[in-house]
Design a protein around this nucleic acid. Structure first.
Length: 923
DNA sequence: CCTCTGCAAAGAGGA
């Protein structure tokens, strides 16, 4: 049976004498949470019925009304599992598979058997690559995590060879695959100064070894293959992507040379991880294959005379268990928040190629390490800052891990209700694409919503994302019919959100770079040890708005940084664009960044207007993914594929580069440097998030409004306050506040001004205050229903009571849009804002495509003539999304001429701020 | 809950 629970006290490890000699054991007091019958296909003694196992114990799984047993149960871990026992701390989760029940002095206990695995914190999913790094040296694992993998040729080549390998397995022609894959990496190869021909030749050499080996297999037997499978194990808490699986056993590709008889130990460990993953998916794996593609006939194996690049090895029980113990070390360390020192492993520092880096990092961060320290430690306040943010980012990471665990902890219906999955899809067809990939189609029942969006990566499965057949797929189209692309065909009936650690990885790298690579002057400013300095500038940039002009002057003249506070509609975007133009005219290279793609595109749009005729359009580049960048900015988007020299030239020649802060943390952007970085909507960014952009530039300008949306973080911690807000307090002399708004009719701005800006927000001109729909060509307010004629109106809808959607509100909104259209408005002049992604997709299904419907978060930074707000709350205003009033501020300040609030007045009246809003809207 | 993100894995070199 499998036993699971929470460690309830100190763990005792000792030695006892048995008939076999001295043996180690650990007694773990465990507060049981579950006991499951083990799946034993042969009906062996382990497959006792659940009821018998549970009798006398209280088990959370066995009934909702059962009180948890106050007394912990002793679980004894024998032999080498005591190593994992040493890692345990009270509160940690523990899983013991194939345990045996034992009566001792009248008490029920459990113990490990020869078939047992002991898993520490099983819901923490450890990456296979993390285990591979860890076995080399735990400190190396930490260094990799901290700084990310830099752009270098061996890595890029390795990636291409892997892709070609996958293509070969899927039946693609070798030459065609090489050409296509080298082309896809054009930009990276350009940055590395590589030519496509030499890379293709290099890849061809490696691929030749693969092909020859594949041919051998084909001659002798019918091999069953599949490539690149993403595997997740809920039992062992491991996830990874296997290069290939042949007859159920893992094949791992290595682009290096290995002339020894045996595979490298770390490579074996990696293959063993995949074996564990495959075992959980029904396999019975006892061999693995490593394919060293640089081995060739010329490098005859010194011992065996072997000519092939492949090395098979057998995987015993002992190796698999060793791998689980390694995995436990990582899980325990990450749970307790400790930093590896290197003493955990047996690696010899003098042989390590990372020894110098390791010593420098240890020295600067004042960390204990086996390699020792060199250099001067960072000042205490910087060390404290590093530790605080490291912890906060890792806390975010654990939240992502919790999302993974939900893939199996929640059942299908729960996930669908949470909008984390689309279930019960009807599979339509699978169609082979060029290059061996597949297009999959499925149909959803009308009305099913989720937070999935086109362009997202998802787990596409035939029923369960972890237990069933499951593939990582990309959503190409999301209508009633859903179109996906994936490496292998799955008869897809379900889609699940795939959680990603990418953001946390990049935040960590940005933190590392800011403190360990950042220059001293920059850090003096960030830590308040020096005051920002400004160059005297006589020029007038904007002559009808003194504050805007002051802001541009500060931005252009800043030697360190400038801070621009811009409430809604005060011309932030214009001010940024004007400042960038001035910098460009001085010959500087400028980075334009913001948290969301939408904000980047908005700012870029205003900038394009300013730069017209100033520089060549080709010198303005937008970096980002195709699905992220707005269609009308696509012409400026930097394509990654193509000829390396061309791609490189396109990027290097760009005088203005625009990208989200997440993209600024990518390997490609990290190779770039700028004179100045301007970050829009900076109040929405965490400190490390802001650093990802400003790390790339000599000086920076942050523009934002802390009365609007704060950073999005999963856990409450140091990440919730933006660098912008902190610097505004630290260096008030570097800041300017814009105070005149050019957007809203007086009636619309009244509430926000009073509620969020002490009444200080004022219309810039009388015309702004007085603007109404009548000013628009072909629109007559008189043609609207009476209740919509005022610039602010409220439509009371009782709502349908669901959590993240409301079909009644959606239906009313569709009617409202028809009414506005009938009065002469263009659909493109109307925007709809909802708090939840699911409601956004619900509304989208009700209204024409050319009406912009989006979440508050994605609407920040833009405006429309008419805005309709869907509150999506019935009865009460529960949920964190309503608690942050700054979100309301954003929603209510998007319109220029008309605002319609749609919601349940009873729900809104339960909160004082929403109550005042209601009074204002209903006046 | 909201956001972002080509996923994950890619690796010369040695005692």
């Amino acid at each position: 049976m499998h036993v699971r629970g929470t460690v309830a006290g100190e763990v005792e490890v000792r030695s006892v004498s048995t008939s076999y000699g001295e043996t180690d054991l650990a007694e773990v007091p465990l507060q049981l949470t579950a006991i499951e019958a083990a799946a034993a296909p042969d009906g062996g003694p382990e497959s006792e019925p659940l009821a018998a196992a549970v009798e006398g114990d209280s088990v959370a799984d066995s009934g909702p009304n059962l009180e948890p047993d106050p007394e912990p149960t002793t679980v004894t871990l024998w032999n080498k599992w005591t190593e994992s026992a040493e890692l345990l701390e009270p509160g940690m989760e523990l899983l013991v598979t194939n345990a045996e029940q034992d009566e001792y002095q009248g008490e029920t206990q459990y113990k490990t058997t020869g078939d047992s695995y002991v898993v520490v914190e099983p819901s923490f999913l450890v990456n296979v690559t993390a285990i591979r790094n860890w076995v080399e040296c735990p400190r190396l694992y930490y260094l990799n995590k901290l700084s990310g993998v830099p752009l270098n040729y061996p890595v890029v080549k390795g990636t291409i060879v892997h892709e070609v390998f996958g293509d070969l397995l899927r039946g693609r022609d070798l030459e065609e695959s090489i050409d296509a894959r080298v082309d896809e990496h054009g930009l990276e190869l350009g940055l590395l100064g590589e030519s496509p021909d030499s890379v293709a030749e290099d890849v061809r050499e490696n691929a030749g070894a693969i092909e020859g080996w594949l041919e051998q297999g084909r001659l002798t037997e019918e091999d069953s293959w599949r490539s690149e499978q993403l595997l997740i194990s809920e039992t062992f808490g491991i996830r990874g992507r296997a290069d290939a699986i042949r007859r159920g056993a893992p094949v791992e590709l290595k682009t290096g040379k290995n002339l020894k008889k045996e595979p490298r130990f770390k490579d074996k460990v990696q293959a063993a991880c995949y074996a564990l993953l495959l075992e959980e998916h029904g396999g019975d794996v006892d061999t693995g294959t490593l394919l060293y593609t640089k081995n060739s006939a010329l490098d005859r194996n010194e011992e065996t005379g072997d000519l092939t690049p492949a090395k098979d090895f057998s995987m015993g029980d002992g190796l698999l268990k060793f791998v689980v113990r390694l995995r436990n070390e990582i899980a325990a360390m990450e749970t307790s928040g400790d930093i590896p020192t290197g003493y955990e492993g047996s690696a010899k520092c003098e042989y390590c190629f990372e020894q110098d880096t390791c010593m420098v990092v240890s020295g600067r961060l004042d960390q204990e390490s086996k390699a020792g320290q060199i250099g001067q430690a960072l000042p205490d306040e910087e060390l404290e800052y590093f530790e605080r943010f490291y912890r906060a980012i890792e806390e975010e990471r654990r939240e992502v891990h919790r999302e993974y665990a939900k893939l199996w902890e929640q059942d299908a219906q729960e996930r669908a209700d949470d909008d984390r999955a689309l279930i019960d899809l009807e599979f339509v067809e699978k169609r082979p694409l060029e290059g061996g990939r597949w297009e999959l189609r499925a149909r959803r029942e009308g009305g099913a919503t989720s937070k999935l969006r086109e362009g997202d990566l998802v787990l596409a499965s035939d029923g369960h994302p972890v237990r069933g057949q499951s593939e990582l797929a990309r959503i190409e189209r999301l209508d009633d019919e859903i179109v996906l692309t994936a490496d292998e065909p799955v008869e897809v009936t379900r889609l699940d959100v795939y959680p990603s650690e990418l953001t946390t990885d990049r935040l960590l790298a940005a933190l590392h770079d800011a403190l360990l690579k950042g220059d001293e002057r920059r850090k003096d400013i960030l830590f308040g040890r020096a005051d920002p300095e400004f160059e005297e500038i006589e020029e007038t940039f904007i002559d009808n708005n003194a504050r805007q002009n002051e802001a541009v002057t500060k931005a252009v003249g800043a030697k360190d940084c400038a801070l621009i506070h811009g409430p809604p509609g005060t011309g932030k975007t214009y001010t940024i664009a004007r400042a960038i133009r001035a910098m460009v005219e001085r010959g500087e290279r400028v980075l334009l960044s913001a948290f969301t793609n939408r904000a980047v595109d908005n700012a870029l749009e205003a900038l394009l207007e300013q730069l017209e005729g100033v520089i060549d359009e080709e010198r303005i580049v937008r970096v980002g993914s195709e699905s992220g960048v707005r269609d009308d900015m696509e012409p400026y988007r930097l394509e990654r594929a193509g000829d390396p020299e061309d791609r490189l030239a396109e990027l290097q020649n760009a005088q203005v580069v625009a990208a989200t802060t997440a993209t600024c943390g990518s390997r490609i952007m990290k190779e770039q440097s700028f004179d100045a970085a301007l970050v829009d909507e900076a109040a929405q960014l965490t400190e490390p998030g802001t650093c990802a952009a400003i790390n790339l530039a000599e000086r920076f300008v942050l523009v934002g409004d802390h009365e609007q949306l704060p950073p999005v973080v999963r856990a409450e911690n140091d990440l919730s306050e933006s660098l912008f807000e902190r610097l505004v307090d630290l260096h008030p002399e570097a800041g300017v506040m814009l105070d005149r708004q050019y957007r809203m009719n007086q009636r619309i701005q009244a509430f926000a001004s009073r509620e969020f800006y002490d009444g200080k927000l004022r219309p810039a001109e009388p015309e702004v205050a007085a603007r109404t729909l009548d000013d628009l060509e072909g629109v007559a307010r008189a043609d609207l229903p009476e209740h919509l004629q005022d610039p602010v109106s409220f439509v009371d809808v009782e709502g349908d009571g669901s959590r993240y959607t409301d079909s009644e509100e959606a239906a009313r909104i569709a009617e409202l849009i028809e009414a506005y259209e009938a009065a002469g408005l263009e659909r493109s002049e109307i925007g709809v804002i909802a708090p939840f992604r699911a409601q956004v997709s619900e509304i989208s299904a009700h209204v024409p495509d050319d009406v912009a419907v989006d979440t508050v978060d994605r609407f920040q930074g833009s405006s429309q003539e008419v805005i309709v707000v869907s509150f999506t709350a019935t009865g009460s205003l529960e949920g964190p999304i309503f608690e942050d009033y700054r979100r309301i501020n954003v929603a209510l300040t998007r319109p220029k001429r008309a605002l319609v609030l749609v919601g349940d007045s009873n729900a809104l009246a339960t909160d004082p701020v929403y109550g005042r809003m209601l009074e204002w809207a209903r006046r």
